[in-house]
């Protein structure tokens, strides 16, 4: 791979949007090319700057939009009964209905297939020998990485094990987002919950942390989950993660959240998060100040 080719693919590499073969090729190139490693670091810095420039809606805008929408809906005719197509979908026999578990297994299949297949038939293959024959044709020996596609339900141990391994793949943020997105529906499992907590606490990609947080919503009653949420709320760089963390913690209505929210108000600059925390403290009859 040339530097020119590598630099074309680095932005997509950083977003985890290359296929397996393309990523392998980039990683091999990066091992030996300091210039492209510098370029990758520069792109990472662009990501961090873009993160800082993310705009959040001003305080109160969401509430005012909700109120405005409610007013507009009040003037609308009531939603019609489900149409023919919708009824068709809801009345399909159970055997062919799009059950969540089935859908998730399909997702698993889709993501595995996407990760394990390349765009061109021979991409990533290594030419081992070339033999011209007397008829003017040529025989080429290829060494290919063999790929396997596994299909199964999330409850099956091998599938879950692979998903958990993919969720911990430090090199590929896209793969981690996909895995955590699928695993989050299984958060009743302590093993999966452990992976979600680890992702929320330590994943460098805010998209992964957000997906992990979604999966942990239902477990806000657990002290360990609340601890991780509080840590995210107080230390996460991403306003989106902090926003979701405050929503989940506040809706959990646990008394030990009070101290966290008070601590948060001393350091938080985001208007929405400040406003949400202040309102929650007042609802819990707690002081918005610390003494």
């Amino acid at each position: 791979m040339t530097c020119e080719m590598a630099r074309t693919e680095l932005p997509l590499f950083l977003y985890g949007e290359l296929n397996f073969d393309e990523e392998e090729a980039i990683e091999r190139h990066l091992e030996t090319c300091a210039g492209c490693r510098d370029e990758l670091n520069a792109l990472k810095a662009v990501h961090r700057l873009a993160d800082q420039a993310e705009m959040d809606p001003p305080a109160g805008l969401l509430e005012s939009c909700r109120a405005g929408l409610a007013g507009q809906l009040a003037g609308q005719p009531p939603a019609r009964r489900a149409g023919l197509w919708a009824r068709f979908w809801s009345w399909r026999p159970a055997a062919v209905a799009w059950k969540p578990a089935g859908a998730l297994a399909l997702l698993a299949l889709g993501f595995l297939a996407a990760r394990l297949s390349g765009p061109a038939p021979y991409s990533g293959a290594r030419v081992r020998y070339i033999e011209p024959d007397p008829d003017g044709r040529v025989q080429i020996g290829l060494e290919e990485t063999r790929q396997r596609v596994l299909t199964g339900r999330l409850e099956e141990a091998p599938i879950r094990k692979l998903l958990l391994a993919a969720a911990a793949n430090r090199e590929d943020a896209g793969l981690r987002v996909d895995s955590i997105d699928i695993l989050k529906s299984q958060s009743a499992s302590a093993e999966v919950r452990g992976a979600l907590l680890a992702a929320l606490r330590g994943d460098p990609d805010p998209g992964v942390r957000l997906k992990a947080l979604e999966g942990l919503k239902a477990f806000v009653w657990e002290a360990e989950t609340r601890k991780a949420l509080a840590q995210a709320l107080l230390t996460d760089d991403s306003p989106s993660v902090r926003t979701m963390a405050v929503d989940v913690l506040v809706e959990g209505k646990q008394q030990d959240v009070v101290g966290v929210l008070q601590q948060l108000l001393r350091r938080e600059n985001n208007d929405y998060i400040r406003e949400r925390s202040t309102r929650a403290l007042r609802e819990m009859r707690a002081s918005v100040e610390t003494f």
Partner: peptide
């Protein structure tokens, strides 16, 4: 489905 059936 509930919203489609008119559940506000």
């Amino acid at each position: 489905r509930a919203a489609q059936a008119g559940d506000q």
